[in-house]
Structures are given as C-alpha cells and as structure tokens.
C-alpha cells in the first residue's frame, strides 16, 4: 500500500531548461548514430549508384560523366551475352540451391536422430560454412586438379578414369555447384534441423496413436512445422547463390570459355576490369531487381498457406 500523503516531498533540484529539452529529445539523440550509419553506409551509396547507372561514367578515367538516361540499361538488355549470363546464373542457382536443399534436408533428418558422436558430427558439418569462400574455391580447385587432385586420384583408382572437371562446360558447372553445395548444405541443414527440433513431441505421438504412417506423419506433422524455415533457407540461399563470386572466380574465372561466367563475374569485369562504373551500376540494379522479384515471389509462396488459413477462418 502506498500512502503518498505520509511521505515527505522528495528533494528534487529544479531541472534546467536544457536538461528538460535534452530529455525530450533523448530518443532522437539515441537514434541518431544508427540513422547516420544507415544513411551513410546504406542509403547514400544505394542512391548514388542508382544515379550513376544513368551516366556514362568511369571512375578510373578523367572524362566527365555524361547523362545517358536508360542508355546503360538498354545496352545491357540488348546484349545477348548478358542474357547468357542470366541463364548461366539461373542454372547455377537452380543446381546449387536444389542440391543444397536436398542434401541439407537429408543431413538434417539424419542428424535429428540420436546417435553417438552426433554433436561432433554436427560441429564438423558446420565447419565449411565458417570458411572464406575464396579458401573454399582454392581448396576445390586443388581437389579437381587433374594432375594433383584427390578426386582424379579416386576416380582413377576406383573406376579407371578421370574427369577433367574444369575443362568442359558441364562438368565445370557441376564442379562449381558441388563446391558451393559443400559449403552451404550445412546451412540449410541447420535451419531445417532447428525446424525439426521445434516440431512438438506431442504431435508426433498423436500421429503415432492415430496410426499415421511415416510419410503421412512427415507430411502432416513435420512438414508444416518446418516449411517456413525451409522457405527461409531457400530464399537466403537463392539470394546468396545469385551473388556468388569468390568461389567461382578462384575456381574457374568464369571458364572454361564462359561456362561458369555468372552475373557477378560479369559485374566484376564491368566494374573493376573495364572500369565502366555507370554500366556496372546499371547491371547491379538489374540484378537487384531480379533478386527482389525472386524473393518476393518466394515470400508470397510462403505466406500463401497462412493467408489461406485465415481466409478460411473468416
């Protein structure tokens, strides 16, 4: 019980006008550093590069920027090579994300079981994810090396033939996809595993009592629970794979020929080899648009179930 009349008035110094004003503006002051960082490191470069994409401009060369509006976009979209790069990137993304999805999922199901040494296996599996992509690229380049590579040695010993992985277009794409898959399947696994761990035990038991088979239990109990995380894994991996540069650059430099020349490689060439800064900005924006469209359709797909459920309810 608080009896305010009994307590003596508190001794508070009358506060200065400044202090009161400071108090009122404190939230603004506290937010300011974040705001400055956000604008300075994120918003400003974004808008600046958007602006650049409308100019013919090279950061390396002395000529003045020339406003050409959609000229960069036009020449990019009219360039059959860029469309080929889109195709190559799409093939890589589909292959890599698909494989990572399957493997990550499988690994998660395996690691969801209890067995001896599970924690050790789990931490070992997470190791590739912690590595620098450049290191992974270099590492796989050696694995695929026809003279010194481990893979060639194994296929030679076991099957009596070697695949020249990085010398033919299709195997090279497979090789790059495998490297990325090696690195990122554990990521998908981690997300799926956390989903699996979140499946309520009672639901699984309920399904047992209901006589649901393994597949039906999986479809009706497990899948709905892990679906949002699966979608998230696919979304994140798609965005990342779309941008992948380091591993490819180190392993193949986009070769053989242009078989693994993805958009990021093309962007790197435009920006840092040809120093066509304006055009590179335009390509970066085209990629951004594609990523946004992709991720939005993913999100829509992911939200569909929820909203459908709500519609039914109302």
């Amino acid at each position: 019980m608080r009896d305010s009349e009994d307590t003596p008035p508190r001794l508070v110094k009358p506060r200065s006008a400044f202090a009161r004003m400071f108090d009122r503006r404190l939230p603004a002051w506290l937010l300011a550093p974040t705001g400055v960082l956000l604008v300075g490191l994120f918003l400003f470069p974004l808008l600046w590069s958007l602006g650049l994409s409308f100019y013919r401009y090279s950061v390396l060369r002395a000529r003045d920027p020339k406003l050409i509006w959609g000229g960069n976009y036009g020449s990019l979209l009219g360039d059959p090579d860029i469309w080929t790069r889109f195709g190559t990137t799409g093939a890589f993304v589909l292959g890599a994300v698909g494989l990572q999805f399957v493997l990550g999922f499988g690994l998660a199901l395996l690691l969801h079981q209890e067995f001896r040494g599970r924690k050790v296996v789990l931490s070992l599996l997470l190791a590739p994810m912690m590595m620098a992509p450049v290191a992974v690229g270099a590492f796989f380049k050696f694995i695929y090396d026809p003279t010194f590579g481990v893979l060639g040695f194994f296929t030679q010993t076991l099957f009596g033939f070697e695949v020249s992985w990085l010398e033919r277009p299709f195997p090279a794409m497979v090789a790059v996809i495998l490297a990325d898959t090696w690195m990122w399947s554990p990521f998908v696994m981690l997300l799926v595993l956390s989903g699996l761990l979140a499946v309520p035990k009672h639901l699984m038991e309920m399904a047992q009592i209901d006589r649901a088979g393994r597949w039906l239990t999986f479809r009706n109990v497990v899948l709905p629970q892990i679906k949002p995380l699966l979608m998230l894994a696919v979304l994140l991996r798609t965005m990342e794979a779309f941008k992948l540069f380091d591993t490819i650059w180190v392993m193949t430099q986009g070769g053989p020929g242009t078989a693994t020349e993805t958009l990021s490689v093309a962007l790197y060439r435009l920006g840092f080899q040809y120093f066509k800064t304006g055009k590179a900005s335009a390509l970066a924006y085209l990629m951004l648009i594609v990523v946004i469209v992709l991720s939005n359709s993913y999100l829509r797909l992911a939200m569909r179930d929820v909203s459908a459920a709500h519609e039914e309810a109302s």
Partner: peptide, 21 residues
Amino acid sequence: PAFFELLTAQQEEFHKAVTGS
C-alpha cells in the same frame, strides 16, 4: 585504353575453343 575489354573478349572466345565448345 579498352585493353581489358579487348582481352576478355579474346580470352573468353579463345578458351571456349580450347575447351571444345
């Protein structure tokens, strides 16, 4: 001045031929 572009065009087409595409 367009050396790198000229070179990349050359290298890409050259390497496609070398690797049989």
